[in-house]
Design a protein around this nucleic acid. Structure first.
Length: 257
DNA sequence: ATGGCATCATTTTGATGA
């Protein structure tokens, strides 16, 4: 099976690209972030026509997450039960498979803005609560996949040379990300040999993509049983070359079940 | 030091993102 994550930066604007991508890449599950669309505006029919089912939660203007899946999503959980939050950033589903149920979690982690910002405090609190939720989920679901925009570049090799900011790479953010791995999750991209300077996001400004001035902040984390079955993880740069692209591009993991 | 681009909401400018 293949599972993927893509921050689309407005599903309304990007829907034709998402549909085209799914036709080219008929993954079993696609996690979307930054729908920027109210829940009742979700384009369910467009995905149904492709034979997909959906679980989603949205809000006006900001955030919003969805999981598009071939299997019927079961046990849909919106948000984090340990962290009351107006912002729609987290959704979980369960799908059946030959190795038993697989829990798929789609996350749009906060950006943080700057280290001095209240949004940064919120980001770290959000990660702490995510840690608590994943710890509980791992006990319940041994086959766990957590996909999304983490807004953390875990290591220096995940950051282009000229990046001058401290947000997304600060020690506290990296520690928060590492603490998720310490639960027994693996960054699937790093299970395999990869090209140097592999990124999943490029700034719209200053020709970021053309210069490959990017960051790797979109990740697929896998629990041990799924990690052992994971045979590939790739970043698909093609959608970033589209007209009117998202600033993020999809990451895809293959799990050979 | 700042803005640079894109999106959204309400406008001729601001908030947010990363």
């Amino acid at each position: 099976m293949k599972i993927a994550t893509w921050n689309v930066n407005s599903l309304k604007v990007r829907l034709p690209q998402v549909i085209a991508w799914l036709q080219e890449n008929p993954v079993d599950a696609l996690c979307l972030q930054e729908l920027k669309q109210e829940t009742d505006k979700f384009p369910l029919d467009a995905f149904k026509e492709l034979g997909y089912q959906c679980a989603w939660t949205g809000q006006k203007t900001y955030n919003g997450v969805a999981i598009i899946s071939k299997q019927t999503p079961l046990d849909i959980t919106l948000n984090n039960p340990f962290f009351p939050d107006e912002q729609q950033r987290l959704i979980s589903i369960t799908v059946p498979s030959a190795i038993g149920d697989i829990r798929i979690i789609c996350a749009y982690c906060p950006n943080g803005s700057s280290l001095e910002s209240d949004k940064y405090t919120y980001k770290l609190e959000w990660f702490r609560a995510l840690h608590q939720y994943l710890e509980q989920q791992l006990q319940k679901y041994p086959n766990l996949a957590v996909l999304g925009d983490y807004n953390v570049a875990p290591e220096d090799r995940d950051v282009h040379d000229k990046y001058s900011g401290d947000i997304l790479v600060s020690p506290s953010e990296r520690e928060a990300f590492q603490r998720l791995l310490d639960l027994g999750l693996s960054d699937s991209f790093r299970l395999f040999e990869q090209e140097e300077k592999s990124f999943s996001w490029w700034d719209y400004r200053m020709m970021g993509f053309r210069r490959n001035a990017g960051l790797r902040i979109d990740h697929i984390l896998l629990s041990r049983p799924l990690r052992d079955l994971c045979t590939e993880c790739v970043i698909d740069k093609q959608p970033r070359r589209n007209e009117q692209p998202s600033d993020h591009t999809p990451v895809i993991a293959t799990i050979t079940i």
